[in-house]
Structures are given as structure tokens and as C-alpha cells.
């Protein structure tokens, strides 16, 4: 990630496609991430219903609580596009508010996840308990790790905005974080459907 703060010293480069290097990089990275989460989801599905002991998804997953946390993450994506929209219009103060909201909602989602993990452990489901535990905690844990990285990235952007580095021209830096953040959101859309709704119902 070549973060080039727009200090005016960085030469504007012409590129073959007219697209920025960094944006091309992040999309290639997200394509790669599809395979990462795809493999984790494949493992979970292959082992669906193969656990030799309980508790399984039907006994332990709490759809109402997770629906709320899913909603929180969706809302954070809205805040993120608002932040991006603000920075491209040069409204740094509005940007700070929106990006902070995004980070707070992301942290809230992580809080839900911590609560959920702890609750499951108390109910007797750990990564060692059965196949469901191993696959569930690994998949959602890595998603949570991605959210954590995202929150740190957002807070860093919030911090940069006070250095005077983040101006209308550097909307790209926000754009990259936003793409990452939305990607983490759509991964959760899949996880919520596959692990929670389908996992419990079928």
C-alpha cells in the first residue's frame, strides 16, 4: 500500500489504463480475498452437519441478535459512503464525523461478536468442541480480524485528516479504505446468510 500523502511533492503519473495503481491493487486484492473467504466458507459447508457432538448451529446461533449486528454493519457501510462523498466534496469536518461513525459502528459489530463468542464458550461451544466450532470460529474470527483491521484503518484516516494531508484530491486514500470496508460488509452478508440463516434452517 503506497500511501502517498498529497503533500504536493508526489508526481502525478500517467498510467496505461488511466486508472490509479493503488485502486487497481485494491481490486486485485479483493479478488484474492474472495478466494480466501471462499475457501473458509467451503470448509464450513463441507462440514455442515458432520459434527459428531453438539452443540450445532440450531442449538446455539441466535438469529435476532445477529440480525441486529448485521444491521449495524450495513449501516456502517452507509456511513462510509457518506464519508467518501464528503471528502470528494472537500468537506473535511463532515468527513471526520462520518468516518468516526463508521468506525464506531464497526467497533459495535466487533462488540457483538465478542459477546457472541463469549456466550457460545459459556454454552459449551469452543473451536475444539466439534467441527462446527472449528469452522464457525475460524470463519467468523477471520472476518472479525478483517473488521478490526478496517476499524484501525478508518481511525488512521480520521487521524490523518488532522495532519492536513487529507484533502479533496486525496479522496483516493479514503476510496481504498471504503472499498475494503464494503468488501468486509459483503462478506458478512454472505456469512449471515450461509452460516446463520441457512445453517440454522437446514
Amino acid at each position: 500500500m503506497e500511501h502517498a500523502p498529497a503533500t504536493g511533492h508526489v508526481a502525478i503519473e500517467e498510467t496505461t489504463t488511466g486508472l490509479s495503481h493503488r485502486k487497481l491493487l485494491i481490486w486485485a486484492f479483493l479478488a484474492s480475498e474472495c478466494m480466501f473467504f471462499g475457501s473458509l466458507i467451503a470448509t464450513l459447508l463441507v462440514y455442515h452437519g458432520k459434527s459428531l457432538s453438539g452443540p450445532g448451529p440450531k442449538e446455539i446461533l441466535d438469529i435476532p441478535v445477529t440480525s441486529v449486528s448485521t444491521f449495524v454493519l450495513l449501516l456502517s457501510s452507509l456511513m462510509m459512503v457518506m464519508a467518501y462523498s464528503a471528502i470528494t466534496r472537500g468537506r473535511v469536518k463532515a468527513f471526520r464525523i462520518w468516518i468516526m461513525c463508521t468506525a464506531i459502528l464497526g467497533a459495535t459489530f466487533l462488540g457483538f461478536q465478542a459477546f457472541e463468542f463469549r456466550h457460545f464458550a459459556l454454552e459449551g461451544l469452543t473451536p475444539r468442541t466439534n467441527l462446527f466450532g472449528s469452522t464457525f470460529f475460524t470463519l467468523t474470527g477471520f472476518h472479525g480480524a478483517h473488521v478490526t483491521v478496517g476499524v484501525i484503518w478508518l481511525l488512521s484516516l480520521f487521524g490523518y485528516s488532522f495532519r492536513g494531508d487529507l484533502t479533496r484530491e486525496s479522496g483516493l486514500s479514503v476510496d481504498l479504505a471504503a472499498l475494503y470496508w464494503h468488501f468486509v460488509d459483503i462478506v458478512w452478508i454472505v456469512i449471515f446468510t450461509v452460516v446463520y440463516l441457512i445453517g440454522v434452517a437446514l
Binding site: 479483493l30 474472495c34 478466494m35 471462499g38 467451503a42 459447508l45
Partner: peptide
């Protein structure tokens, strides 16, 4: 469209693997 191509490519491959 290059971005869409990159992303959809990775996505389709992941879906096929699953």
C-alpha cells in the same frame, strides 16, 4: 469495467470452487 472484471472473476472462481 476492469475493476468489475477483476472482482467478478475472483468471485466466480471462489463460487465455482465452493
Amino acid at each position: 469495467r476492469l475493476f468489475s472484471g477483476l472482482f467478478v472473476g475472483g468471485l466466480l472462481l471462489a463460487a465455482s470452487v465452493i
